[in-house]
Amino acid sequence: MNARLLRLHLTARGVPGFAVGLAAVTVLAWCAGSWLASRSYFNGALARVPVVALAPLLAAILVGPTLGGADDDLERSTALRWRAWRAGHVLLAGLTIAAALSLAGLREPHTFGAYALVRNALGCTGMVAGAAALLGVRLAWLPAFGYVCAVYAAVPRQTDPVTALWAWPLQPSTSVTSWLPVVALFGLGVTAYVRFGPGATVFKSILDTFGPQRGHSGPRST
């Protein structure tokens, strides 16, 4: 029963499509990283910054649509422990992305390689999961996309703690400070998604708690 339910869940959420996309991103990241690191006019493995910034973002964007079903309200009405399912789904997704992308940076992993890819994969996944709870699955990609693109456009060269805090996607993995926002983002994002689920339910919960009391309108029409 559980195996069948799992298979149905994965199919309904488009996980096979995500897996294909993740494989493509991993291969692309490996090719791009190897090409950049092998150019004589670049500085070796240090030239893999674009791969470290953009591959985890792309993979996290692909995981976005799998965080919600075709009808979230209908899903919630079923007698399932959805928080456990959500936790398993998002944690597995984050770890799968991190593990897959780390394969693309095994050569010189400390220098914008596997460790930085894992860090950014967890950070971007946390942002997408949190945004799925806040904005809904349809716009879950937006904060991570905007943030990483903005940091990438800024190309900060400093590695001081303040810069490492806001520009973590472009910091070397040896910067301990750059891991702190990632841990916070992943923790908050996953917690928000597990607690509230997909859809703008965080705002609804806040409105229901603190907003003006509204009369019960009965079951909604579909």
């Binding site: 953009l54 964007i61 976005g64 699955v137 990609w141 937006l142 996309f145």
Partner: peptide
């Protein structure tokens, strides 16, 4: 017809132009 067509197309454009 994908939900993530917009960001993926944007990133692909960036990579292509790069």
């Amino acid at each position: 017809p994908l939900r993530v067509a917009a960001p993926v197309a944007g990133l692909a454009t960036y990579l292509g132009l790069g």
